[in-house]
Design a protein around this nucleic acid. Structure first.
Length: 112
RNA sequence: UGAGAAGGCCGAACGGUCGCCCGGUACAAAAUGUGCCGGGAGGAAAGUCCGAGCUCCGUAGGGCAGGACGCCGGGUAACGCCCGGUGGAGGCGACUCUAAGGAAAGUGCAACAGAGAUAUACCGCCUGAUGUAUGUCAGGCAAGGGUGGAAAGGUGAGGUAAGAGCUCACCAGAGCCUUGGCGACUUGGCUGCUAUGUAAACCCCGUCCGGUGCAAGAUUGAUAGUGGGCAUGAUGCGGCUGCCCGCCGCGCCCCAUGUAAUCGCUGGAGCCUAUAGGCAACUAUAGGCGUAGAUAGAUGACCGUUUUCGACAGAACUCGGCUUACAGGCCUGUCUCAAAAC
RNA sequence: GGAGAAGUACCCAAGUUUGGCUGAAGGGGCUCCCCUGCUAAGGGAGUAGGCCGGGGUAACCGGCGCGAGGGUUCAAAUCCCUCCUUCUCCG
C-alpha cells in the first residue's frame, strides 16, 4: 500500500527538485509538482547534517506517520518531497501533524 | 569500613489499539489484494585499521622491486589477534604497561653551543731548557673546569713528576666456559679493559604477501542509442577502374558508455550444553537449536504498569580480531593496601 | 556500501622529499603617501601577526600553539599510531 506512493529513483527526486515549487515553515520545506495523471508519490529526504542514522530514521518515520494519517484528504495529482529541518528533532508529534497539514494547505493540495 | 586491582555479564521489560519489512499458507487470480501463522538490528551493527572466505582479471616456475611483521613457546583457516612465559619500566601492594631482532656488515645524520662530535687539547696539571716582565720554547697527561642530549665505563682506594683500568674492590657492559630450561633467558666462574646516539633514517637478518572489492560478478530482457576504431577477424555493398591485386568509405565486427529486472543474499572456520585433554588460548566427541535479508532502504504514534523515563548508537556479501563511543546496573565463597575489632 | 585525497595566521597558500637559526616564505589584507575634481584601478613605502603570563601597560621578554591526542628522537609542521573534519571517485 505504502510502496506505490513512494518516490523511488534518484531521477524522480531530481525531477521534483528541478520543476517543483516550494513552501516551508520552521519544521520542513515541502517541494511539490502538480501532475495531470492521478498518481500520488511522496519522498522524504533527510540531510546528513541533522544527525546520525538512528536520528535520521526516527525523523523519517515520524514524518511518514504524520503524512499517511491524512492521506485521504490529499490531492492525487502531485509529486511531493518533504525536507525536514533542524527544528523537527525536538518537535512533538502533534506539532508535526499541524505543520504538515498547514504546508499542504498552502500548496493548495489539501481538499476539504 | 574506606581506598583500589582483576575478570565476566546486562544494556529497559510487559500489556492494549493503529501501522511497516520478509517467509509460509488459504481464497480470488493478469497484475496483485485480503485473512491467518511465524520471524524481524548491536555490544559495539561504527571507524574501515588488519586477517580470511567468495568474485572476476592475471599467472609454467623462479627472482628483483615494493610493502607488512619482528623477545620466546603455543593456539588458529589466517592475522599486525589471543594465551602462557622472558627481559625492561611503573606502583607500598594486588597488578599494570611495553613497535622489545641487529649499531661488533656497511652508509648517512647529530643544527646551535663547544678547543674538540667519534675524534680532541681551549683553560689547565707536571717535567726540562731558557730566562726572571712569572713569560717563551720542547715534551708528557687527560684527573679537574666550561659547552652539550651525548666528551673514550661509574664510585672509592692505591699508585705517580703529574696522570691514566696502570693496579685492586664493588657495580654496569662484552666474550668464553658452565647450572637449569624446548626456547627467550638464567645460575656460578674466568678473561680482558670498552665498544656515543639514531634502524617509528637507508639498510642487514628472519617470516609472509599477485591485483581487485558484492557499486565484485553472472543471467535474462529492452534499446539496437551515443562516441571511437579499421589493428585483428569476416570479405557484404559502394568508389578509384571493365576485371584481379591493392587502397579508401559504410555496414557486420571490435572497444567504451548508457537503461531495467532476477540471481549473488545468507547454514556458517555457526550458537548452546555436557564430557575428556590442556595452567590457558583452544581442541576433540556426543546431544540440541534453526537465528534479519531490505533496495529512497523495514521497530513508529498514543496509552497503562514497573518509585527513577534512561547512554553510545541502526545489518547492506559473510566471518575472525583490533580500535574508538557509551547513562545506569549486576556478579565473583576473587585479590591487595590502610584502620579498627576478635 | 566500497576506494582514495587533503587539513599551516582573517583568506589563498609554500615549506613535509633529506627532522635543526621557520612563528613559519610569498600574495591578498591593513596603515600612510602619490595619482584624480572625488572614488575605483594603478604606483611607492611601511606594518602587526593567535592564546596565556610578566612588564612603565610602550618597547620588549618567557611559555604554548601547523585539525586533536599519544609515541620515537637531544630535537617533530616534517617520522609512526589512534581519532576528528572536509572533499573526490565507483551503479
Amino acid at each position: 500500500m505504502r510502496r506505490e506512493y513512494s518516490l523511488r529513483r534518484n531521477k524522480e527526486f531530481r525531477y521534483v527538485y528541478k520543476r517543483g515549487k516550494s513552501v516551508s515553515d520552521r519544521n520542513f520545506t515541502l517541494i511539490y509538482v502538480k501532475t495531470k495523471t492521478p498518481h500520488l508519490k511522496v519522498g522524504f529526504s533527510v540531510s546528513k547534517k541533522l544527525g546520525n542514522s538512528v536520528e535520521r530514521n526516527r525523523i523519517k518515520r515520524r514524518v511518514k506517520e504524520a503524512f499517511f494519517s491524512m492521506l485521504d484528504g490529499v490531492s492525487k495529482k502531485c509529486l511531493l518531497v518533504f525536507v525536514p529541518k533542524e527544528h523537527v528533532k525536538e518537535a512533538a508529534f502533534e506539532e508535526i501533524l499541524l505543520s504538515v497539514s498547514r504546508l499542504l494547505r498552502q500548496a493548495g493540495l489539501l481538499e476539504n
